[in-house]
Design a protein around this nucleic acid. Sequence first.
DNA 1: TAAAAAACTTGAAGTACTTCAAGAAATACG
DNA 2: CGTATTTCTTGAAGTACTTCAAGTTTTTTA
Lengths: 190, 190
Amino acid sequence: MFTSLFQHIEKFIILEPSEIDILKSCLGLSTIKKKTLVLQEGQVCNTMYFIIKGCMRQYIINSKGSEQTLQFGIENWWITDYLSYHNHTPSHFYIQAIENCEVIAIEKPILESLLIQIPKLERYFRIVSQKSFGAAQMRIKFLFTMSAEERYHHFNDMNPEFVQRVPQYMLASYLDFSAEFMSKIRAGKI
Amino acid sequence: MFTSLFQHIEKFIILEPSEIDILKSCLGLSTIKKKTLVLQEGQVCNTMYFIIKGCMRQYIINSKGSEQTLQFGIENWWITDYLSYHNHTPSHFYIQAIENCEVIAIEKPILESLLIQIPKLERYFRIVSQKSFGAAQMRIKFLFTMSAEERYHHFNDMNPEFVQRVPQYMLASYLDFSAEFMSKIRAGKI
DNA sequence: TAAAAAACTTGAAGTACTTCAAGAAATACG
DNA sequence: CGTATTTCTTGAAGTACTTCAAGTTTTTTA
């Protein structure tokens, strides 16, 4: 049931059986239907989501009223708005399921009490978030140094299976170009 | 001597006197001269730098041979390449002092032993890196939604004092436009 | 299984930037 | 203090994209 989370945790730390029991007793499984918003702009984000199955995204609505995807999350990823979560400030983002999902949704008070009961989990979340920050830095590097076409091919090469899972227009906005331009790249008309 | 680091840590956790002693005994102060590179592309990054005084930056050299700044760090910031640090892989980045700096440079083995002796520090680094990741998400949002001119004015409004500290061409590349274009924005010629 | 909704494609016209080149101004340094 | 180095400015020409509008294809849902 929660095996994928335990497997993920045990990549970084080793849990005692008693700690596993505590953790299990605090976790719950949720199902989220495709297109459901679990966070909207303006709300304070009080939940972290660990994706067991499915795909989610974090996006914004820009000044022209169109959506731009900032982040995708798939199996074994945590997704949340860390700034809103930590500062108790209204979020700038939407978080949405783009497939039917199974997730572990942990509310802040529960997570805080877990971190007190199982201090080792601090280490787990530290390593995960440091790696995420490193990945964000690489993402900015790619955005800065590659042309639209290069970003598309690079992403395709690195994540061939993932490209099939999401609508092209979401991927286009994630790579920071228009859906129309993506269509032309794919057709080889550039 | 290390007061700024202790003050920063104590924003997030409370240290026992004994823990403060342990920490002090493991830390050292370094002076870095302006323009010194503490990390070069291709090297494995084994050090985290806490900036006590001065300003540093993380940058890349793009395919045309010019520098693009990805990140600045000033007083009370940690700077490192987390991906290279965690995965022991060659870095994609340069890290350089752009003012004469005083830093606390912690080597990975020392930090690892500190984290074992003072597990509370895991919490400190978790919170710091989650907030950094949140800030990186906001940065991507700004890059996606604002024009060059908007990014310049927004940054200026948010960090008026900082803009004076770094050469314009470094700030231009951080905001992802050319130094020439920045010059024209500033002159009001756009 | 039909109808509606969502996603993708195409071409034409426009624009927000970049690049280049050269000179001027500011800053650092022996 | 004067010279070298670094940083900033300006205009002209070019380009990598965007926007718009309309049609086509694919997927979802009743």
